[in-house]
């Protein structure tokens, strides 16, 4: 689509923002807000906190702008900042409520019971995954979240985390194996409905 071709790159928007154009940063937010929102949910496990963390991630990214060298995409940097923001979610929540608390609540919709129930289910499922994830080393957690869950390339993650590509590969390989075993065991006990999938996984590994 021609419109897509004419869309400014992240690097261009970032340069405009740094030159004093707040709307360029706003465009970057609109472009990446949902990715960061879902990423934060996957690191915290609570949708409400993930929304707080999303805004705070953008704020912190802006504060650190002098240290960020945006290449093709701002996303790796956003995820890297989000890693720290989500770790400090409890500590930062009080300060950050000054942002989210100020924004008016979304308009009331006719009936959102299904949506609420689905979100509660999401959170339960995510908490199980996070319980397993948190048994890994912190550096391994970041690599799994950025590579496996968000689909960033090894080189993007390496650049954002400041480690060699080989380190990313080895961390990911180690973390995947351990996480899969933990999740398969956990889901066998708590989610019998997922047994078919876990058995498929075991078959993949064999």
């Amino acid at each position: 689509m021609a419109a897509d071709d004419s869309e400014p790159s992240d690097a261009r928007l970032w340069a405009r923002a740094c030159a004093g154009d707040p709307t360029a940063f706003g465009e970057l937010f609109v472009r990446h807000a949902n990715r960061v929102h879902n990423y934060c949910f996957r690191r915290i496990g609570v949708w409400g906190l993930a929304e707080d963390a999303t805004s705070q991630t953008f704020m912190e990214t802006w504060r650190r702008r002098s240290t960020i060298d945006v290449g093709e995409s701002l996303l790796p940097w956003l995820f890297t900042v989000a890693n720290n923001v989500c770790r400090n979610a409890d500590r930062g929540r009080r300060r950050h409520q000054n942002l989210v608390g100020k924004v008016p609540a979304p308009e009331v919709v006719a009936d959102h019971a299904d949506e609420v129930a689905a979100r509660v289910d999401d959170e339960r499922q995510m908490q199980r995954v996070l319980a397993a994830l948190r048994t890994l080393k912190r550096a391994d957690q970041d690599v799994v979240a950025m590579c496996d869950w968000e689909g960033l390339s090894y080189s993007e993650v390496a650049a954002a985390l400041g480690v060699p590509v080989g380190t990313v590969r080895s961390r990911l390989s180690r973390a995947r194996t351990r996480l899969k075993n933990l999740l398969i065991d956990e889901l066998d006990h708590t989610r019998p409905d997922l047994r078919v999938r876990t058995e498929d996984l075991r078959g993949d590994e064999a």
Binding site: P22, F25, G26, F29, V30, A33, N34, H37, N38, F41, R42, W47, E51, T54, S55, F58, M59, W62, L99, V100, K102, V103, P104, P106, E107, R119, D121, D122, E123, Q125, M126, V129, W149
Partner: peptide, 19 residues
């Protein structure tokens, strides 16, 4: 992982303005 979800557009607009 649970499925991805989208922020409501008015929420995005409000957060964008604040940022």
């Amino acid at each position: 992982l649970p499925p991805s979800r989208q922020l409501a557009p008015p929420r995005v607009a409000a957060l964008r303005a604040e940022l």
